[in-house]
Design a binder for these strands. Structure first.
Lengths: 115, 115
DNA sequence: TCGGAAGTTCCAAATGTTTGGAACTTCTGG
DNA sequence: CCAGAAGTTCCAAACATTTGGAACTTCCGA
């Protein structure tokens, strides 16, 4: 376990699935969780947010918030941009619109709660 | 454990959630399963089908098929109509359209598989 | 009245998801 | 160089979903 001897620091890029490989069932399963659906709505309403800000909105501990933002990213719903130690999360709305036209609108438009 | 002494046979109706109480997260979670998403697509393409026919399409044993059709019904995605010992399943497309405009279209239109 | 067909329910095993604390990494400012 | 802030990863416990066989209920036709 010496430090890996790579010359290039290889800036450990954050992985995002390509738009044309996004899987509808995966996307739906991921967003079919009240907490994550709320997150998507907040992002749609407010644009780019810090991971921490998003988590605090929902009253989540850091590790939980990190977990859910990872799921959203891996399903292709959000993009994560790193700036120093900060991570800005945003909705991949154009990508989603191009792959699943109409989906974002469905997710974001509130069905009035008659429950 | 004598037989329940109720005079009325009470025809044990199949329960369906009312359209205006359908919950988006619940609907999405339910349809966010490749198997159930396929079922929805088959129903959209072919209209009303027998529970058994739907299950055979997917190569499922009866109990599994019954389980998934129940989840679809409880989330409000499908309607089940009983006729003797048969149960016909159909998509609640008009109800879904009225509560979540655009959703059915998203579920049913195939994103071409570039994976 | 019997037998079979269609479905459901029951159940336990296997599998997957969610949670949050603690330890860790990385970056920034002083 | 150090402290602190932002996030991630690790981990184990709690919880939920999925699977399919077996037993059961209902209805229909002969």
């Amino acid at each position: 376990m010496t430090k890996t001897p790579e010359a290039a620091p290889a800036r450990e890029t954050i992985r995002h699935p390509a738009t044309d490989t996004l899987d509808l069932a995966h996307v739906l399963r991921t967003v079919g969780d009240p907490l994550r659906l709320s997150m998507i709505r907040v992002l749609a309403a407010e644009g780019e947010l810090l991971c921490g800000a998003l988590g605090e909105r929902m009253g989540l501990p850091k590790s939980t918030s990190s977990y859910h933002t990872r799921l959203l990213r891996e399903a292709g719903l959000t993009r994560t941009r790193q700036d120093g130690t900060l991570r800005y999360i945003s909705l991949r709305d154009a990508d989603l619109e191009s792959r699943f036209p109409g989906l974002v609108e469905v997710l974001v438009s509130q069905a009035d709660d008659a429950a």
